[in-house]
């Protein structure tokens, strides 16, 4: 089983590289992202079903309401079966942040950080950093012109520069610190939050105004809470690079 999982969930090394947050804090206009490992493909329904079978506490009929809202895995025919209308090899969706974290943890992995995800996602098929390539940006935006939640099997398209598939064009994906770029529920009233970083400066300070897809990802992530599930939100896992032997 483990081998099976490993084959399906092979990781590739991404980075190191520089990522410019859309709303950078002072002195953080460019963030150096160390190299890390990232799933080549998003987690599929079949993989998540196996996880749920091994960890029945994450079945939709068992999961606590704190950890997943009512939409959790609601496309499945039953708590332990996908049914015929769910594409086994398609990206899983309807998964909360808690569930995504638990899945990755079960694989000795974790969710990628926003910086890691964005670093991987700014690559086109040719370039590590295509964040100012109008054609690349237009391709990403085109996804938003396709309504609904139709997906393809994962790794259906061409991999990007790092060998990663489908960061754009299939489903939104959880990042570990999805709320960090914004004022999260828990720290909304916290005086230590640097408000100007998020709000006061408005769009005027956004570092790369042409990257409208990045605006959308921030808008989308900021609409989420940790128990949120939506039909077009999936995830993939990441891992630190193995420490080199001394």
């Amino acid at each position: 089983m483990k081998i099976f999982l490993l084959v399906l969930a092979s990781m590739t090394t991404v980075g190191p590289g520089l990522w410019r947050p859309l709303y950078p804090a002072e002195g953080e206009e460019e963030i150096t992202v160390p190299a890390f490992e990232l799933d080549e493909a998003a987690v599929t329904h079949r993989q998540f079903l196996e996880f749920v079978q091994e960890h029945p506490e994450w079945r939709r009929d068992n999961v606590g309401s704190l950890f997943a809202d009512e939409g959790y895995l609601d496309s499945w025919a039953g708590p332990g079966e996908l049914g015929s209308s769910v594409g086994r090899g398609h990206p899983v969706s309807g998964v909360s942040w808690w569930a995504a974290r638990a899945y990755c943890s079960s694989r000795d992995a974790r969710l990628p950080t926003e910086a890691e995800w964005e670093l991987a996602a700014q690559a086109s098929t040719e370039e590590a950093d295509a964040s100012e390539d109008p054609e690349h940006l237009a391709q990403i935006l085109a996804w938003y012109s396709r309504p609904g939640n139709q997906t393809d099997p994962v790794a259906h398209s061409e991999p990007n520069f790092w060998g990663v598939y489908d960061l754009h064009g299939q489903v939104w994906e959880w990042v570990d610190d999805y709320a960090s770029a914004l004022v999260a529920n828990d720290n909304r009233e916290d005086g230590t939050v640097d408000i100007t970083r998020f709000c006061g400066a408005g769009a005027i300070t956004a570092s790369l105004k042409i990257d409208y897809a990045a605006f959308m990802r921030i808008a989308f992530r900021s609409s989420l809470q940790a128990d949120s599930t939506t039909r077009n939100l999936g995830f993939r896992c990441a891992r630190d690079l193995p420490k080199e032997a001394p």
């Binding site: 709303y23 004022v183 009233e189 408000i195 709000c199 408005g202 956004a206």
Partner: peptide
């Protein structure tokens, strides 16, 4: 509105309003 353009998610607080 400018705050929203920035993707500011504040459903109750107005602390960021200057």
């Amino acid at each position: 509105a400018a705050a929203l353009l920035a993707g500011c998610n504040s459903s109750t607080s107005t602390s960021e309003s200057s």
